[in-house]
């Protein structure tokens, strides 16, 4: 399931490459997002010395490669076709608290090289560690980086390279939200999913609906109504509550992690142990948050909004099962 049809890599899995200068935060990101390492523990991570490959098994299988900053991957000593692949994304991490000119130079060299070899690979620039910066300084830094990258690219004659920028930090939700957007671009079914979510929201007056991969806290689609940052945050906090309580009461910890191809498996052991359904009712607002497992790997989370009387739950349940049915046609289990 979920294999991309035109994938050219041997294993058929889209690949996310994490690149950037040393100490820019790549391993921290990978550990926080895919291994649930508490952000403060990243202070004790050791420098990565060789490429670390991990595979993520979810609604779509993909790989995450952590490429240590000390090598020059454009050097011919590296087989670039081995590293870069047609399908996937290059996540370039820039430490916003540090000098970033050299990082930008390297980033641009990489983009230019990719333009000639794998022009369709998405380049996703994470302006990282923004938690340490004041609001003003943060947006100045961000703008400066965007500007410099684009200027250098257009000087080199490249106008429409697929490069996007995000402000991220492992200390808040931003890193998960950025990953969500990176991954959404790799899902060919995205428009269908959005249409289904739109219909669901319209039918039972739901304020906002997200389709989450619960294990990674990455959302793969949401309805197309305007998103404010707060909506993702509250859903993500809600997942934490559910996951934490489910861990306490629902699971016997399983020490047998599986390994394949030397790549660590992420999330595989959690499969099928997720919560089936959950609801939070607020004293002042009635039904407020709703969660339902709709697929082996996917969970629907809805913010019901300010006027969702408790008796409307039946309607929601019904519409969600319609949605669930439609989803099985998009992603057969």
């Amino acid at each position: 399931t979920g294999k991309l049809p035109n994938s050219k890599t041997q294993d058929g899995k889209p690949r996310l490459l994490l690149m950037g200068q040393r100490r820019s935060g790549k391993s921290s990101i990978s550990n926080v997002v895919f291994h649930k390492l508490p952000p403060s523990e990243t202070l004790y991570l050791e420098t990565t010395t060789k490429i670390k490959k991990e595979s993520m098994h979810s609604f779509m299988d993909f790989q995450v490669w952590d490429l240590p900053g000390q090598f020059d991957y454009l050097d011919s000593a590296f087989d670039s076709a081995e590293i870069f692949s047609e399908i996937g994304a290059l996540v370039w991490v820039i430490d916003a608290q540090d000098e970033y000119l050299e990082a930008i130079t390297k980033l641009n060299a990489t983009i230019l090289k990719l333009q000639s070899t794998f022009p369709s690979i998405n380049v996703e620039v994470f302006v990282h560690k923004v938690d340490g910066l004041s609001d003003d300084y943060r947006s100045d830094t961000y703008r400066d980086i965007v500007q410099r990258v684009q200027d250098e690219l257009s000087d080199a004659g490249v106008e429409n390279a697929p490069v996007s920028f995000y402000q991220t930090s492992i200390y808040d939700h931003s890193i998960f939200e950025a990953f969500s957007k990176v991954i959404q671009k790799l899902i060919p079914e995205l428009p269908t999913l959005e249409a289904l979510l739109n219909a669901l929201c319209a039918n039972c007056r739901i304020e906002k609906a997200y389709l989450f991969d619960i294990v990674s806290k990455i959302y793969i689609a949401t309805d197309t109504s305007p998103t404010d940052i707060g909506s993702y945050e509250i859903c993500s906090d809600y997942i934490d509550v559910i996951i934490d309580i489910t861990e306490i009461y629902g699971k016997i910890p399983d020490p047998n992690e599986e390994f394949t191809n030397g790549a660590e498996q992420i999330g595989a052991k959690e499969v099928g142990n997720g919560p089936a359904e959950s609801l939070i009712t607020l004293e002042k607002k009635g039904n407020y948050l709703y969660l339902r497992e709709v697929h082996q790997y996917l969970t629907l989370i809805c913010i019901l909004g300010d006027d969702s009387p408790t008796d409307r739950k039946g309607l929601i349940d019904y519409n969600v099962s319609v949605f669930e049915h439609a989803l099985t046609q998009v992603f057969p289990r």
């Binding site: 945050e233 559910i242 489910t246 089936a276 359904e277 959950s278 609801l279 939070i280 607020l282 607002k285």
Partner: peptide, 30 residues
């Protein structure tokens, strides 16, 4: 406690009164 703060932040209700009436979780094993 964390959840109470998250709700307060999102709904604009002061943290002191951002109480839920109920939270339910139905899972396979419990």
């Amino acid at each position: 406690k964390t959840h109470k703060q998250s709700m307060a932040k999102h709904t604009g209700i002061p943290a002191g009164s951002a109480n839920f009436a109920e939270l339910q979780i139905k899972a396979a094993g419990f």
